[in-house]
Design a protein around this nucleic acid. Structure first.
Lengths: 144, 144
DNA sequence: CGATTTAAAGACAAAATTATCTTTAATTAG
DNA sequence: CTAATTAAAGATAATTTTGTCTTTAAATCG
């Protein structure tokens, strides 16, 4: 469904949202270990996530690290896809046709459109926070 | 969602299923042109699709080419994913966790599971033929 | 200020995917 | 049998994705 980079990005963001609820910041090391991702590759992904400062925030130096503001935590999970430049997955034709649409549909369009609607709905309506609290509750896990 | 190779495979299979309804065979050139895919890459994909002879069939020489038997046409569209070794997409965790399951779910599991069920249902219940006839009817298109 | 800690940035490398090209093998028509 | 046609197979190349390493910049603490 998504690239490895985006999978790591989703895991990282949800993890940070959970852990930094008390204004704590998380180091790259903590994040990479927690979500089971290669450290240097994760560094690059974190740069994308912090790029515009609207999603993940960061500060350098001692006691620095990554964190999410209260507002950021309330953002829909699609924000992560946007930061990774992978939102298009939620709109793409299942057969990869550029012109596929309601007016000019591919053979699978009328069936696939229902799956895609559900997928988009999920990413638009559920917030980062909502997934983060589930880890707190101990009902779900984010590491292999 | 799927790799380019699998997108081409789905387009090719549906296209062949439509065109060869009167025992006609389609050359690689016809297929590549029709589905707007690079010819040599399509050749490789066709080899995967004909591999076990259960999905796409082929014969060499003059008037040779690719075709689908009546039985093949009735197969569910997931057969194409299987031939391409990409069925796992329909089962994979949205966050890329290997251990994610009902018993040990990732944070997005309980939401994503509904999307995945719809997706699996689509690929299991709809046959190649069902998509092919839509092209015949002129209601859908398979080329950019 | 100077040392330490942390992320940012950029160069580099490996692996996977996508795409191309050439040769071989099978089939048919004459 | 020979020539023509077509897919099969395999070698090669380009691109993208994934992953690593090194240097730089910022922040904090003494």
């Amino acid at each position: 469904m998504f690239s490895k980079a985006t999978e790591y990005a989703l895991r990282a963001t949800i993890f940070i949202a959970q852990k930094c609820e008390d204004d704590r910041k998380l180091s790259l090391d903590e994040i990479a270990t927690a979500i089971d991702s290669p450290r240097p590759f994760t560094a690059k992904i974190m740069q994308l996530l912090t790029k515009d400062g609207m999603l993940v925030s960061s500060t350098r130096g001692p006691n620095g690290g990554f964190y999410l503001t209260k507002t950021a935590r309330k953002q829909p999970i699609i924000s992560v896809l946007k930061a990774m430049g992978e939102e298009s997955v939620l709109d793409k034709c299942v057969l990869g046709l550029k012109m596929c649409s309601e007016i000019k549909p591919c053979p699978m369009h009328s069936e696939y459109v229902h799956v895609r609607r559900k997928l988009k709905e999920l990413f638009h309506t559920k917030s980062i926070e909502e997934f983060a609290v589930l880890i707190d509750d101990g009902v779900v896990f984010i590491r292999n």
